[in-house]
Simulated assay, not measured.
Amino acid sequence: MELDVKKHYPKDWVVLQNRVVECFKSMTLDEKRLFIMATPLARTTNVSSGEPIFISTDEFASACGLEITGAYTALGVATKKLFDRSFGYVRADKKKVSIRWMYKTAYGDGGSELYFTDEVLLLLREFDALNPYTKYKKEVVLRLKKDYSLDLYHLAKKHQNMGGFQISLDDLFEQLGLPESYRRIGNLKDRVINPSLDEITENTDIDLTYENVKKGRSVVGFKFTVREKPKPKPQLIAPEKDIKTVDLFCNMSDAQINKYSTILSKLSELSDLSNFPDYPTFAIWISGILRDPKSVREETAKRILKALHQKTDFKL
Protein backbone atom coordinates (compact mmCIF):
# COMPACT_ATOMS: atom_id res chain seq x y z
CA MET A 1 0.00 0.00 0.00
CA GLU A 2 1.36 3.42 -0.91
CA LEU A 3 1.77 5.97 1.85
CA ASP A 4 -0.55 8.96 1.76
CA VAL A 5 1.97 11.22 3.50
CA LYS A 6 5.74 11.65 3.65
CA LYS A 7 6.13 10.45 0.08
CA HIS A 8 8.14 13.39 -1.17
CA TYR A 9 9.87 11.66 -4.07
CA PRO A 10 8.93 8.75 -6.36
CA LYS A 11 10.61 5.35 -6.39
CA ASP A 12 13.17 6.30 -9.01
CA TRP A 13 14.79 8.76 -6.57
CA VAL A 14 17.27 7.86 -3.84
CA VAL A 15 16.63 10.04 -0.79
CA LEU A 16 18.90 9.38 2.19
CA GLN A 17 19.63 11.16 5.41
CA ASN A 18 23.25 12.24 5.35
CA ARG A 19 24.00 10.32 8.52
CA VAL A 20 22.69 7.13 6.89
CA VAL A 21 25.23 7.38 4.08
CA GLU A 22 27.99 8.11 6.57
CA CYS A 23 27.10 4.82 8.25
CA PHE A 24 27.37 2.65 5.14
CA LYS A 25 30.80 3.81 4.00
CA SER A 26 32.34 0.43 4.93
CA MET A 27 29.96 -1.50 2.67
CA THR A 28 31.10 -3.09 -0.58
CA LEU A 29 29.89 -1.64 -3.87
CA ASP A 30 27.30 -4.40 -4.34
CA GLU A 31 26.00 -3.93 -0.80
CA LYS A 32 25.54 -0.22 -1.47
CA ARG A 33 23.78 -0.99 -4.75
CA LEU A 34 21.38 -3.39 -3.04
CA PHE A 35 20.77 -0.92 -0.22
CA ILE A 36 20.13 1.92 -2.67
CA MET A 37 17.65 -0.19 -4.65
CA ALA A 38 15.77 -1.16 -1.49
CA THR A 39 15.53 2.22 0.24
CA PRO A 40 13.06 3.87 -2.18
CA LEU A 41 10.70 0.93 -1.61
CA ALA A 42 11.03 1.35 2.15
CA ARG A 43 10.33 5.06 1.78
CA THR A 44 7.32 4.92 -0.53
CA THR A 45 5.46 1.90 0.83
CA ASN A 46 3.91 1.05 4.16
CA VAL A 47 6.19 -1.94 4.72
CA SER A 48 6.95 -2.75 8.35
CA SER A 49 9.91 -4.52 9.94
CA GLY A 50 8.01 -7.80 9.67
CA GLU A 51 7.55 -7.49 5.91
CA PRO A 52 10.18 -8.02 3.22
CA ILE A 53 11.41 -5.68 0.53
CA PHE A 54 12.10 -7.84 -2.50
CA ILE A 55 14.83 -7.17 -5.09
CA SER A 56 14.85 -9.66 -7.94
CA THR A 57 18.04 -10.95 -9.54
CA ASP A 58 16.83 -9.72 -12.94
CA GLU A 59 16.16 -6.24 -11.55
CA PHE A 60 19.57 -6.11 -9.85
CA ALA A 61 21.33 -7.20 -13.04
CA SER A 62 19.49 -4.68 -15.21
CA ALA A 63 19.90 -1.71 -12.85
CA CYS A 64 23.62 -2.34 -12.25
CA GLY A 65 24.57 -3.36 -15.79
CA LEU A 66 25.57 -6.91 -14.83
CA GLU A 67 25.26 -10.24 -16.60
CA ILE A 68 22.60 -12.39 -14.97
CA THR A 69 25.08 -15.03 -13.78
CA GLY A 70 27.32 -12.40 -12.22
CA ALA A 71 24.31 -10.66 -10.68
CA TYR A 72 23.17 -13.91 -9.06
CA THR A 73 26.47 -14.29 -7.23
CA ALA A 74 26.85 -10.59 -6.40
CA LEU A 75 23.33 -10.32 -5.00
CA GLY A 76 23.78 -13.39 -2.82
CA VAL A 77 27.07 -12.15 -1.35
CA ALA A 78 25.70 -8.62 -0.83
CA THR A 79 22.60 -9.97 0.93
CA LYS A 80 24.69 -12.00 3.37
CA LYS A 81 27.05 -9.10 4.08
CA LEU A 82 24.17 -6.66 4.65
CA PHE A 83 22.70 -9.00 7.24
CA ASP A 84 25.95 -8.81 9.20
CA ARG A 85 26.14 -5.00 9.11
CA SER A 86 25.34 -2.67 12.00
CA PHE A 87 25.89 0.94 12.91
CA GLY A 88 25.85 2.93 16.11
CA TYR A 89 25.23 6.25 17.77
CA VAL A 90 25.48 7.80 21.24
CA ARG A 91 22.18 8.45 23.02
CA ALA A 92 21.40 11.52 25.10
CA ASP A 93 22.18 9.51 28.23
CA LYS A 94 25.68 8.85 26.81
CA LYS A 95 25.02 5.17 26.18
CA LYS A 96 26.34 3.76 22.93
CA VAL A 97 23.63 2.15 20.83
CA SER A 98 24.28 -0.46 18.14
CA ILE A 99 21.62 -1.18 15.51
CA ARG A 100 21.50 -3.82 12.79
CA TRP A 101 20.49 -2.59 9.35
CA MET A 102 18.14 -5.54 9.06
CA TYR A 103 17.08 -8.35 11.33
CA LYS A 104 16.42 -10.96 8.66
CA THR A 105 17.24 -11.72 5.01
CA ALA A 106 16.29 -14.47 2.61
CA TYR A 107 17.94 -15.26 -0.70
CA GLY A 108 17.23 -17.65 -3.57
CA ASP A 109 17.30 -17.95 -7.34
CA GLY A 110 14.65 -15.27 -7.79
CA GLY A 111 16.24 -12.58 -5.65
CA SER A 112 16.60 -11.22 -2.11
CA GLU A 113 14.15 -10.45 0.68
CA LEU A 114 15.34 -7.73 3.04
CA TYR A 115 13.68 -7.09 6.40
CA PHE A 116 14.78 -3.68 7.75
CA THR A 117 14.64 -2.95 11.48
CA ASP A 118 12.12 -0.40 12.76
CA GLU A 119 14.87 2.10 13.56
CA VAL A 120 16.25 1.94 10.02
CA LEU A 121 12.80 2.27 8.45
CA LEU A 122 12.31 5.45 10.45
CA LEU A 123 15.65 6.80 9.25
CA LEU A 124 14.68 6.05 5.65
CA ARG A 125 11.42 7.99 5.94
CA GLU A 126 12.26 11.10 7.97
CA PHE A 127 13.44 14.16 6.00
CA ASP A 128 13.37 17.66 7.49
CA ALA A 129 15.60 20.44 8.84
CA LEU A 130 16.63 18.23 11.75
CA ASN A 131 17.35 15.32 9.46
CA PRO A 132 19.22 16.75 6.44
CA TYR A 133 19.26 14.56 3.39
CA THR A 134 20.63 14.22 -0.13
CA LYS A 135 18.70 13.09 -3.18
CA TYR A 136 19.53 11.90 -6.68
CA LYS A 137 18.15 9.68 -9.42
CA LYS A 138 18.55 5.97 -8.64
CA GLU A 139 19.38 5.03 -12.23
CA VAL A 140 22.26 7.53 -12.27
CA VAL A 141 24.10 6.31 -9.19
CA LEU A 142 23.64 2.62 -10.04
CA ARG A 143 25.62 3.13 -13.26
CA LEU A 144 28.78 3.73 -11.24
CA LYS A 145 31.13 0.75 -11.03
CA LYS A 146 34.31 2.05 -9.37
CA ASP A 147 34.72 1.29 -5.67
CA TYR A 148 34.57 4.90 -4.49
CA SER A 149 32.60 6.65 -7.24
CA LEU A 150 29.30 6.25 -5.45
CA ASP A 151 30.62 7.80 -2.23
CA LEU A 152 32.21 10.76 -4.03
CA TYR A 153 29.06 11.26 -6.08
CA HIS A 154 27.01 11.43 -2.90
CA LEU A 155 29.40 13.97 -1.39
CA ALA A 156 29.19 16.04 -4.58
CA LYS A 157 25.38 15.99 -4.63
CA LYS A 158 25.30 16.84 -0.93
CA HIS A 159 27.27 20.04 -1.65
CA GLN A 160 26.04 20.78 -5.17
CA ASN A 161 24.03 23.86 -4.18
CA MET A 162 27.20 25.38 -2.73
CA GLY A 163 29.16 24.72 -5.91
CA GLY A 164 31.46 22.21 -4.26
CA PHE A 165 33.25 21.40 -1.04
CA GLN A 166 36.67 21.29 0.58
CA ILE A 167 37.78 18.30 2.59
CA SER A 168 40.92 17.42 4.51
CA LEU A 169 42.79 14.20 3.86
CA ASP A 170 41.79 12.81 7.25
CA ASP A 171 38.11 13.57 6.65
CA LEU A 172 38.27 12.11 3.14
CA PHE A 173 39.73 8.87 4.52
CA GLU A 174 37.02 8.82 7.17
CA GLN A 175 34.17 9.60 4.75
CA LEU A 176 35.23 6.98 2.20
CA GLY A 177 36.59 4.38 4.63
CA LEU A 178 39.91 4.33 2.76
CA PRO A 179 42.77 1.99 3.73
CA GLU A 180 46.02 3.47 4.99
CA SER A 181 47.81 2.19 1.87
CA TYR A 182 46.30 5.17 0.02
CA ARG A 183 48.01 7.75 2.24
CA ARG A 184 50.62 8.41 -0.46
CA ILE A 185 49.07 11.22 -2.54
CA GLY A 186 50.01 9.74 -5.90
CA ASN A 187 48.46 6.42 -4.93
CA LEU A 188 45.32 8.14 -3.64
CA LYS A 189 44.84 10.08 -6.86
CA ASP A 190 45.60 7.16 -9.18
CA ARG A 191 43.50 4.57 -7.33
CA VAL A 192 40.62 6.62 -5.92
CA ILE A 193 40.13 10.21 -7.01
CA ASN A 194 40.96 10.32 -10.72
CA PRO A 195 39.14 7.13 -11.82
CA SER A 196 36.11 8.01 -9.69
CA LEU A 197 35.85 11.56 -11.00
CA ASP A 198 36.30 10.40 -14.59
CA GLU A 199 33.46 7.91 -14.16
CA ILE A 200 31.19 10.43 -12.42
CA THR A 201 31.73 13.07 -15.09
CA GLU A 202 31.15 10.58 -17.91
CA ASN A 203 28.08 8.82 -16.52
CA THR A 204 26.13 11.20 -14.28
CA ASP A 205 24.39 14.57 -14.29
CA ILE A 206 27.38 16.50 -12.90
CA ASP A 207 30.94 17.44 -13.76
CA LEU A 208 33.25 16.93 -10.77
CA THR A 209 36.77 18.36 -10.69
CA TYR A 210 39.30 19.01 -7.93
CA GLU A 211 42.46 20.84 -6.97
CA ASN A 212 45.00 20.33 -4.21
CA VAL A 213 44.81 22.18 -0.91
CA LYS A 214 48.36 22.67 0.35
CA LYS A 215 50.05 23.65 3.55
CA GLY A 216 53.53 24.62 2.54
CA ARG A 217 54.57 21.99 0.03
CA SER A 218 52.38 19.25 1.44
CA VAL A 219 48.90 18.35 0.17
CA VAL A 220 46.55 18.41 3.18
CA GLY A 221 43.23 18.12 1.37
CA PHE A 222 41.28 18.76 -1.80
CA LYS A 223 38.82 21.32 -3.07
CA PHE A 224 36.12 19.76 -5.26
CA THR A 225 34.04 21.78 -7.71
CA VAL A 226 30.59 20.51 -8.69
CA ARG A 227 28.88 21.74 -11.84
CA GLU A 228 25.54 20.51 -13.12
CA LYS A 229 25.67 19.46 -16.75
CA PRO A 230 23.42 21.49 -19.05
CA LYS A 231 20.16 19.70 -19.64
CA PRO A 232 19.70 18.59 -23.25
CA LYS A 233 17.42 20.84 -25.23
CA PRO A 234 14.10 19.23 -26.10
CA GLN A 235 14.20 18.02 -29.65
CA LEU A 236 11.78 19.67 -31.98
CA ILE A 237 9.44 17.34 -33.78
CA ALA A 238 10.45 17.34 -37.40
CA PRO A 239 7.68 18.41 -39.76
CA GLU A 240 6.11 15.63 -41.69
CA LYS A 241 7.76 14.91 -44.98
CA ASP A 242 5.96 16.32 -47.96
CA ILE A 243 4.22 13.25 -49.33
CA LYS A 244 5.17 14.36 -52.80
CA THR A 245 8.87 14.06 -52.07
CA VAL A 246 8.82 10.44 -50.95
CA ASP A 247 5.58 8.55 -51.28
CA LEU A 248 4.97 9.45 -54.91
CA PHE A 249 8.27 7.80 -55.84
CA CYS A 250 7.14 4.48 -54.41
CA ASN A 251 6.11 1.29 -56.18
CA MET A 252 7.96 1.96 -59.43
CA SER A 253 9.00 -1.12 -61.31
CA ASP A 254 12.53 -1.55 -62.65
CA ALA A 255 11.19 -0.98 -66.16
CA GLN A 256 9.57 2.32 -65.10
CA ILE A 257 12.73 3.43 -63.33
CA ASN A 258 14.87 2.74 -66.39
CA LYS A 259 12.37 4.48 -68.69
CA TYR A 260 11.84 7.64 -66.66
CA SER A 261 15.43 8.06 -65.51
CA THR A 262 16.44 8.10 -69.21
CA ILE A 263 13.81 10.74 -69.98
CA LEU A 264 14.67 12.87 -66.96
CA SER A 265 18.40 12.78 -67.72
CA LYS A 266 17.76 14.69 -70.96
CA LEU A 267 15.58 17.46 -69.49
CA SER A 268 17.11 20.94 -69.49
CA GLU A 269 15.37 21.67 -66.16
CA LEU A 270 17.67 19.15 -64.46
CA SER A 271 20.87 19.71 -66.41
CA ASP A 272 22.45 21.73 -63.61
CA LEU A 273 22.34 18.60 -61.40
CA SER A 274 24.65 16.73 -63.72
CA ASN A 275 28.40 16.56 -63.44
CA PHE A 276 28.41 13.38 -65.48
CA PRO A 277 30.14 12.85 -68.86
CA ASP A 278 27.02 11.67 -70.70
CA TYR A 279 23.25 11.10 -70.43
CA PRO A 280 23.40 7.36 -69.58
CA THR A 281 25.60 8.01 -66.54
CA PHE A 282 23.32 10.85 -65.41
CA ALA A 283 20.33 8.50 -65.89
CA ILE A 284 21.93 5.87 -63.60
CA TRP A 285 22.28 8.52 -60.89
CA ILE A 286 18.62 9.55 -61.27
CA SER A 287 17.49 5.91 -61.16
CA GLY A 288 19.12 5.57 -57.74
CA ILE A 289 17.01 8.50 -56.54
CA LEU A 290 13.84 7.01 -57.99
CA ARG A 291 14.55 3.85 -55.99
CA ASP A 292 15.49 5.73 -52.80
CA PRO A 293 14.55 9.44 -52.72
CA LYS A 294 16.06 9.76 -49.22
CA SER A 295 19.51 9.15 -50.67
CA VAL A 296 19.79 12.84 -51.68
CA ARG A 297 18.82 16.21 -50.25
CA GLU A 298 15.08 16.74 -50.03
CA GLU A 299 15.27 19.74 -52.38
CA THR A 300 16.92 17.60 -55.08
CA ALA A 301 14.28 14.89 -54.70
CA LYS A 302 11.54 17.52 -55.01
CA ARG A 303 12.97 18.81 -58.27
CA ILE A 304 13.13 15.32 -59.78
CA LEU A 305 9.59 14.57 -58.58
CA LYS A 306 8.28 17.78 -60.12
CA ALA A 307 9.90 17.00 -63.45
CA LEU A 308 8.67 13.40 -63.31
CA HIS A 309 5.04 14.53 -63.00
CA GLN A 310 5.13 17.61 -65.22
CA LYS A 311 7.42 16.47 -68.06
CA THR A 312 6.62 12.75 -68.42
CA ASP A 313 3.54 10.55 -68.69
CA PHE A 314 4.21 8.91 -65.31
CA LYS A 315 1.10 8.08 -63.29
CA LEU A 316 0.78 6.44 -59.88
Rank of each mutant, 00 (worst) to 15 (best):
M162T: 15
K229E: 08
E119F: 11
K6H: 13
N203W: 12
K214V: 09
E51K: 07
L75C: 01
A129L: 14
S268T: 14
L273A: 01
K135G: 03
V21A: 03
R217F: 13
K223Y: 02
D118I: 09
E174L: 12
K146W: 08
S196C: 06
I185H: 03
F314R: 08
R100T: 09
Q166W: 00
K145M: 10
T28P: 06
G65E: 09
E2Y: 13
F60A: 01
G108D: 14
C23V: 00
R227D: 10
Y279I: 06
V5C: 04
K233Y: 02
V141Q: 05
W285D: 09
L75Q: 11
V141I: 15
T209L: 07
L270W: 03
T79P: 05
L150R: 03
E174P: 03
M252H: 07
F127G: 08
S181W: 04
Y115E: 05
P230W: 06
A301D: 04
K157C: 11
D151L: 12
R191Y: 00
Q17W: 03
A78P: 06
T245D: 13
V192I: 13
D292S: 07
S265C: 10
K135R: 15
I55S: 01
D147E: 15
S196P: 07
M162L: 10
E269G: 02
I68R: 11
I200K: 08
I289S: 02
G186K: 15
D93Y: 04
N212A: 09
D30H: 14
K81P: 00
D84P: 01
K231W: 01
M162E: 15
F173N: 05
G110Q: 14
L267Q: 14
K315C: 06
A92Y: 13
G186H: 13
R191G: 01
R183T: 12
D4L: 14
G216S: 11
Y107R: 15
F224W: 05
